[in-house]
Every structure is written in structure tokens, then in C-alpha cells.
């Protein structure tokens, strides 16, 4: 897979708090272009929080998040619009617009941000849906398709403007193992063929093995990154016993784990 060595995302000294409770404390990392990075951690570790900050939904109490050189934390107006056009987001429940067909859902960003003729927009929308295997459902409403298909449609919509970075929030949540594996294959295929950078929040171990080039692991007790590396390395060679425990799916002595 082709990779530029220049980092496309840089998170610097990122701190997030909710009311007075600190969730993530002074975290810094980089993401290389074309990389599939998985953010993982136990429940409450702040992984979804980190993702939502990276896509500009919330402002951190401290720190910078540089998307292709622009800081999304302070960006406004035209700069913010520019950043948002470089990213696509797939939300945990799909978040497709229930009153529109799949084709209309994928068309929406094209209608708002391009001057393509209508037939061109239809064509691009269908092509994106074909990429995720949903070309037979372009005129269906979201309520008429299954949860796995809704997620794939959501990925197609996130890709409407050919963004460089795709953020996926728990793509495997609520999916059966087969559909989950299909989604993993799709992610890997898109990453390889289109060199899209993927930031994926997940705690599905099987998916992580299938898709991740690198993982960063958050821990809610220390509120920092406790491990970073390839999943196999962390499973077998991490110094941190809790990291090994996570990857080997062992419950802690006592009740349910950290």
C-alpha cells in the first residue's frame, strides 16, 4: 500500500474533560497517510470521545488536532469547511437520513458541495453504493435494509466527496460475525486501493486483527495512551499486563475487568 511518510493527522497534547472530570489527559500521536489506525480501549476509556473531538464535534480543553495541516479545534468558516471536506464519518448507528433513499443520502454532499449536473450526481452516488455492494438497493429507504447494510450505506455516503480520511465509530457494533468480517474486508480493500487513511474506533478483537496497521490503546484509569503498535506485537510482547489481558480476552481476577 502506498504511504506518504508525512503524517496526515497530528494530535498534540490533547486533553478532554466533561464538566470537571478529565477523560483524556495530554495525549499526542500521529497518523500516517494511508494508514488504518484503530483506537481501542475498555468501556469508558474515551475512545469515542477522542473520535468526536477529531471530527470537530467537540472542543477539547487543551491541545491541537491538525488535519492535513489545519487545526480543526480553532478552525472556522472557510478553513473549517475545507477540513470537513477532507473527512468522512461513519456513525455507530449509521445515521442515514430516514426520509431519503440510499441514493439520495449519498447524493446530498454532492448536491451541496459540487456543481455536477444531476445525472452525474446520480452516477457518482450509484458508484459509491456499488463500491460497498449495495447497487441493488439504491432506491430503498434506510428502514427497509438491515443494520449491516445501513452501515455500508453510511460508508458510501461518507465517501461521496472522496475524502482522504474516513472516521468509523464502532463499525462492528451490533453486527453478526459474517457481516462484520465483510465490513472488515471492505475497509481493507478501500484502504489499499484508494489509499484512504482510516481512523477506526473499535473493541472487536477479530476486526482489529483484520484491519489495523497500528493500534493505540486508551486506559480510563490513567487517561492516556498505554500502548501503541501492531496488534500482534501488543498481544504477545507488550510490557503492560492489562494490554496483554485485553488482547487475549481474559477477564480480570474478580469481576469483569478494568
Amino acid at each position: 500500500m502506498s504511504q506518504d511518510q508525512r503524517p496526515i493527522i497530528r494530535v498534540e497534547h490533547f486533553t478532554a474533560a466533561y464538566e470537571r472530570a478529565v477523560i483524556i489527559d495530554d495525549v499526542s500521536f500521529e497518523v500516517k497517510q494511508g494508514e488504518v489506525l484503530v483506537i481501542l480501549g475498555g468501556s469508558g476509556s474515551g475512545k469515542s470521545t477522542l473520535l468526536k473531538h477529531m471530527i470537530g464535534l467537540y472542543k477539547p480543553t487543551h491541545g491541537k488536532i491538525l488535519i492535513d495541516g489545519d487545526d480543526i479545534v480553532t478552525a472556522e468558516g472557510a478553513v473549517r469547511a475545507r477540513i470537513l471536506r477532507k473527512i468522512g464519518v461513519m456513525y455507530q448507528q449509521g445515521a442515514l437520513f430516514g426520509s431519503m433513499t440510499l441514493q439520495e443520502n449519498v447524493r446530498l454532499p454532492l448536491e451541496e458541495f459540487t456543481d455536477l449536473p444531476s445525472e452525474a450526481m446520480d452516477l457518482v452516488a450509484v458508484m459509491k453504493l456499488k463500491l460497498v455492494g449495495l447497487e441493488a438497493f439504491v432506491h430503498h429507504m434506510p428502514s427497509e435494509i438491515s443494520g449491516g447494510m445501513q452501515k455500508r450505506a453510511a460508508i458510501a455516503r461518507a465517501m461521496a466527496l472522496d475524502p482522504q480520511i474516513l472516521f468509523l465509530d464502532e463499525p462492528s457494533a451490533g453486527l453478526d460475525p459474517i457481516t462484520s468480517a465483510e465490513l472488515d474486508h471492505l475497509i481493507v480493500r478501500l484502504a489499499h486501493s484508494l489509499s484512504i487513511t482510516f481512523i477506526v474506533v473499535s473493541h472487536e478483537l477479530a476486526s482489529i486483527d483484520a484491519i489495523a496497521d497500528r493500534v493505540i490503546m486508551l486506559d480510563k484509569r490513567v487517561k492516556k495512551i498505554v500502548a501503541t503498535g501492531r496488534p500482534q506485537e501488543l498481544r504477545d510482547h507488550s510490557d503492560n499486563p492489562w494490554v496483554r489481558q485485553f488482547f487475549n480476552r481474559e477477564a480480570a481476577a474478580g469481576v469483569g475487568g478494568p
Binding site: F113, L116, A120, D162
Partner: peptide, 11 residues
Amino acid sequence: LDSTSTGSIWR
């Protein structure tokens, strides 16, 4: 040829 520049040239 990207999503912003293709429109005019399409027609």
C-alpha cells in the same frame, strides 16, 4: 478531476 472541478468539464 475531483468533485469540485469535474462539474463544468462534464457538460
